[in-house]
Design a protein around this nucleic acid. Structure first.
Lengths: 260, 260
DNA sequence: CGGACTGTTGATCAAGGTCAACCTCTGTGG
DNA sequence: CCACAGAGGTTGACCTTGATCAACAGTCCG
């Protein structure tokens, strides 16, 4: 089967299943349980808020299609984007572990998604420690991205932050087969990039222009192409500690021993 | 028993057990399993690196006593503190879910701690979905703190960031009984506060001075007292979505049904 | 006594924010 | 078919926040 690197399995499977299958063989029961999480499928238009901030309920969102953001808005309107949500992201499995949601989830493009209730995930945990470990692993990846984001926003300048953001998104999309040939579609306004990086939209515009003039990237509309991946990664200080997700051997062993 | 609010149980129990007992009743078996995680107890002097950055192993740290930081250092020496680690923190249970550690753990004071091996935690997960859910909940809290930290660093000014940091630390220490009467000991140099907030140590000094002059806080050496908690929380934009940790009812129910 | 470490304060500087003008593109209603 | 409005983006002018550099003071410790 000729598939994009790392992508295995039936394209009719929901993106979460396809994502996990890259790393582990799922039993039919597990596949069914995961697929059931994604029902019923809902749709929303761009800019719709899927889940508001400050709500007490613990519903999570499983994104099938499109882009969304997790963000927090301060009382005076300043906004920080926590991260971007792309297809296959369960966003976030642990949210119902806390009494209040401290952020909102908003669609960037039109999206297809499912609402996941706490009981569904808790039942999954109770019935399969294997799936529990996998969900935990997804959670660990999310936290990993969050840490890198914090480092970028806290200690990097505008050029480095934007280089990092572009690399991160390219890298995440590559991992699910949504980036071809060093280029990808980033359906976010510069306003959104600003809120993600902690900059102003004006400065994002200037910096992107600079990057294009320097031959780092090329862009038209929302299509970005990475012209010099090495330099981009050096700018973003991406090293061997920041790579495509990978299931550690110890966890792989554990999964093969666990009851299914 | 007259105990500080929220603190229950035998002071001889390891701090992780005491922390969890605030929220759930542990069986003797669970207590023993958790206590076993904390063995053997090691000690390290201030400024010692407990676990370096970039290592491939997945060992985690369970802190019993003292303060530590999780931080990432860039190639040119710029450093971002991810968060502070206080007694009872399992830091972090998910680290062995990723192939490389992207941050270092360094003692701030002299510390007592245990190294936790992946196999130990994975065995815990396999044997008790209850403990698995609790560990996941701790993880969710960690991520919650991380998100708030990102918002502060990305979208708040120096005064607000430092107000937030002080509130966060006070609030976490209160939750484990280490802050009495609106005051606490913060054994961090201003250099560390700078690396946590993404500021320079000079500006941290100025801002802390300002806060003291404004009657927000009082400090001598590393002893901080919050003089106007309301104003501090307003500055830090701490609202009902940012409160003392709490186990949601759905999770509590789940735990009571799960096999022990 | 001298040096290292921490914190404070002043002087100067620069990265990036703010404000504003303007341009293009797209959709809309007369 | 055109006028207009609104969103997104770019660029210039100016300003503010906080960084940098430097001097100095207090404390601890060999």
């Amino acid at each position: 089967m000729a598939e994009p690197a790392g992508i295995v399995g039936n394209p009719d499977d929901p993106p979460l299943v396809r994502k996990l299958r890259q790393f582990v063989t799922l039993t039919p029961g597990e596949t069914a349980a995961l697929a059931a999480l994604g029902q019923p499928l809902r749709t929303a238009r761009a800019r719709t808020t899927l889940l508001p901030q400050g709500q007490t309920s613990g519903t999570a969102v499983l994104l099938h299609d499109g882009w969304a953001i997790r963000h927090r808005t301060l009382v005076d309107g300043r906004r920080q984007i926590i991260d971007f949500v792309v297809p296959g992201d369960l966003c976030d499995p642990s949210s119902f572990m806390l009494p209040h949601r401290d952020f909102a989830i908003t669609a960037v493009t039109s999206v297809r998604f499912a609402l996941v209730e706490p009981a569904d995930v808790l039942a999954l945990l109770r019935d399969s420690t294997r799936l529990g470990a996998l969900l935990w692993w997804l959670e660990a990846q999310e936290e990993y991205i969050l840490r890198a984001h914090l480092v970028a926003v806290g200690r990097m300048n505008a050029l480095e932050r934007i280089a990092y953001l572009i690399w991160e998104l390219w890298s995440r999309l590559s991992a699910v087969g949504l980036a071809k040939d060093n280029s990808f579609i980033l359906p976010a306004t510069q306003d959104l990039l600003a809120d993600a990086t902690g900059l102003s939209h004006v400065h994002v515009s200037r910096t992107l222009g600079q990057m294009a003039r320097d031959g780092l990237i090329q862009r038209q509309d929302h299509h970005y192409r990475l012209l010099d991946l090495q330099r981009l990664m050096r700018l973003a200080q991406v090293d061997r500690t920041a790579r495509r997700p990978q299931l550690p051997a110890t966890v792989r062993e554990h999964l093969s021993q666990a009851r299914r």
